[in-house]
Design a binder for these strands. Structure first.
Lengths: 190, 190
DNA sequence: TGTACATCAGTGAACGCGCGTTCACTGATGTAC
DNA sequence: TGTACATCAGTGAACGCGCGTTCACTGATGTAC
């Protein structure tokens, strides 16, 4: 039965949101169209009224996840605050709601150009923002600050990936703690 | 037709090696049993004379990949040498032959206990080795050296993951260079 | 405003395909005598 | 050593299943008059 245009638009949004969460949790290939539609409370046949293919949805879902991350990071005022939140056990344990880089980073290298382009833009934006937090005013971001921002981003993402992959909770906590120490106050490290 | 025991054992080895490479290149779900057997020059039916299931092979292939990495890292005498090799464009571009952490890190968190246990052991071993290189004598590895080793490992893995996921070769090179600087290899950028 | 019709979001069955796995079979290897 | 038989790695067809996608259909929404 037909639904109102507003309801249809809302359903589309919910499909993207559910897909974004499920893809991060289980990976692209492990989540089927029917699982996504089930999560939204619809049947799988209606999927193609909203998207041309599952790949189309994947590109949109990744973009959505990155936009959500960007917004979340944007609300962190200082570098220590951002680092602390990113390297928290809560973030490690929230795969479906957490950073897309950490959840799907390895898989993104294998995705199509649409997904990768959006991803690259996000990395660029995050690096610019981090460089601003690291190096002082955004208007005068030095090359050194930019390099440090890239290294910090790598360190954060790598720590969460490892902390999630490892089997032992104590080692996992230790990985996060080590990264917190290494990136504390941003300006210096050994 | 039957083959010699030696040939059968060799074929088994080649299946594991091919799977290890293909899984790293394309991910677990994207590589079928027939693709693996094709790569070895056999037909898919014979697969189950060697392995109980595809999952069994996956666990063994990951273990193999980690063992190869451990051996490779073990041949690096100093930390700068190790860092330089790990963060080289050559390593970034060799997904199938490169580090299993960087290629499958995100996926490993979603794998079974067999895969994850082997992975955890590998991380532990690498951290111990890195801590030795970082902190001086292996016999007196301080907690600080251990934390720094964990942070270095995170930084290396994260940098390669990001460098591979990003669409723009220049940004990719920059990510590797930034990580090299951050981890003090002393090497000049070219 | 009310009425008649067109639209289309959603349903659920069905399709084709590829996957992991099984199986009867082959024939060279391995072994018992 | 040679012969006869058993073993089993590898073959290729087949199975069941789940996936992405399609489609005829439903019926409430949207719209033209």
């Amino acid at each position: 039965m037909r639904v109102t245009k507003e309801k249809a638009a809302e359903n589309r949004e919910r499909i993207v949101a559910a897909a974004s969460k499920l893809f991060r949790e289980k990976g692209f290939d492990a989540v089927g169209v029917d699982a996504i539609m089930d999560a939204v409370g619809l049947t799988h046949g209606g999927f193609y009224r909203h998207f041309r293919s599952k790949d189309d949805l994947a590109a949109e879902a990744v973009a959505r996840g990155l936009a959500a991350s960007a917004e979340r990071q944007g609300s962190r005022e200082t570098l220590p605050e951002l680092v602390e939140a990113y390297l928290s056990p809560a973030h490690r344990d929230d795969v479906g709601g957490g950073c897309t880089l950490a959840a799907l980073g390895c898989d993104i290298a294998r995705q199509g150009s649409g997904v990768r382009r959006g991803f690259t833009e996000y990395v660029r934006a995050q690096v610019a923002r981090l460089a601003g937090l690291v190096g002082g005013k955004p208007s005068a971001v030095s090359e050194a600050a930019r390099l440090q921002a890239l290294a910090t981003l790598s360190g954060l993402v790598g720590a969460v990936v490892l902390a999630r992959a490892v089997d032992d909770p104590a080692l996992s906590d230790e990985i996060l703690a080590a990264a917190r120490v290494a990136h504390r106050t941003g300006a210096r490290r050994t």
